[in-house]
Design a protein around this nucleic acid. Structure first.
Lengths: 219, 219
DNA sequence: ATTAATTTTTAGTCTAGACTAAAAATTAAT
DNA sequence: ATTAATTTTTAGTCTAGACTAAAAATTAAT
């Protein structure tokens, strides 16, 4: 069954909210991310349930069905592959590609996305370190930790980010934090939860808890 | 002012119909190409006139304004650049790219299309031999002739096609007619207006007038 | 020059997907 | 256990962009 642009955006956002929790997703949380009012969300949830893409019980929240999830994953796959294209082939920076990929992810063609995948040499992660789902909807488990969770004095590598808003990514760039950077946590400062950090052999810097929380690393 | 997908499609089709004639364009001809009913077209023409993209007089037909034309040209530019990308980089055949480019042409981003242009090495023509408008809306005059118009026994080169429906392009491929082929017209057959034709040094073939009319050549 | 045929427009509907305001259900607070 | 606060849904609107049927204008045919 064909999906409209609006439906695809809802499925994508419901997927994002389902990740992490086993709980059903609230109408309000969806409204916030789609920038719609709760009443509009209720409307759409009824349509999506009708089509069999979500399970939805009045007042009880919503979850993706298997089919709904596979649609969401194929959109995410397209989004991330296009981001790789924009950065690797067209020379964009990692903080510039999100909005364009939001449009490109809705281009409808199975062959296109598989040819693109091959043209890009079957990348496993996008420019923010997020895994790219396979054609079958398999999403590689990367086992990354948040920088706010690693042990003191352990050296780790910056593998990705948990948020890809432009302002966050631009801040990381200013701090000289990019994918692949070697990091060592020197101290968790109790006063403001900030983190003292060494990048490679440079002199230490301070980053906020908010930043550390959104940096993904491999030890 | 932002353009919706529907508006862009109308402008593109009005542009195509304006090419060639100095006459104003009829509601019905637009309805045919957009696959809408005449009443819907009238509606949209009034909106486009309101926005200053066409001049429109009730019952008298429609033409693009300077601004309307520049919007149309930018869509055509995007369409053709994406077609080059699909053929050159992703390995599509020339008869497979039209529908995908119809979607990609609506992606909104000035920087994207200029980076793509540069990535493709500033191509001047698309995979069907159609010229690619510049960022400023300049469209190179190529001075091609229809194969149905060339002189007998004159050798010419296949430079493009005047129609890019998949069935037509597939037929050309079957006939071994591709961009760059060296052609010599041996005879115009009066009976059915078919054309006897030599491709390079191969033995002659017959093609219909309908086909010859849609082949563009340089002598 | 009328009449007939054709084309175009108007008037009124419909659907998707948004909205607001009010009602209903759930959850939190005493 | 009620009441208050919060969340969610329902009912009713609105807009873009399509539609049909009927009216109006233009063009073609006698």
């Amino acid at each position: 069954m064909a999906t409209s642009l609006a439906e695809e955006n809802y499925l994508k956002i419901i997927y994002r909210l389902c990740e992490g929790t086993k709980e059903d997703i609230s109408t309000n949380s969806i409204a916030e991310l789609t920038n719609n009012k709760a009443a509009s969300v209720t409307d759409m949830l009824q349509k999506l349930a009708e089509k069999g893409w979500v399970t939805y019980q009045k007042y009880q929240g919503v979850r993706l069905t298997k089919i709904g999830e596979s649609i969401a994953l194929s959109i995410i796959r397209k989004h991330r592959l296009w981001e790789v294209f924009l950065v690797e082939k067209l020379g964009y920076n990692w903080d510039e590609v999100h909005e364009i990929a939001e449009q490109l992810e809705h281009i409808e063609s199975e062959t296109l996305i598989n040819k693109l995948d091959s043209f890009l040499d079957f990348p496993k992660i996008d420019p923010h370190g997020d895994p790219i789902p396979s054609q079958e909807g398999e999403i590689p488990e990367l086992g990354y930790l948040h920088l706010s969770e690693v042990k003191l004095n352990e050296t780790c590598t910056l593998m990705g980010v948990a948020k890809d808003s432009a302002v966050f990514l631009q801040l990381l760039t200013k701090l000289n934090l990019s994918l692949g950077a070697r990091l060592e946590v020197l101290e968790f400062n109790t006063f403001d939860r900030s983190v003292s950090l060494k990048i490679a052999e440079e002199k230490p810097i301070f980053i906020s808890h908010e930043v550390a929380k959104n940096i993904l690393v491999k030890v």
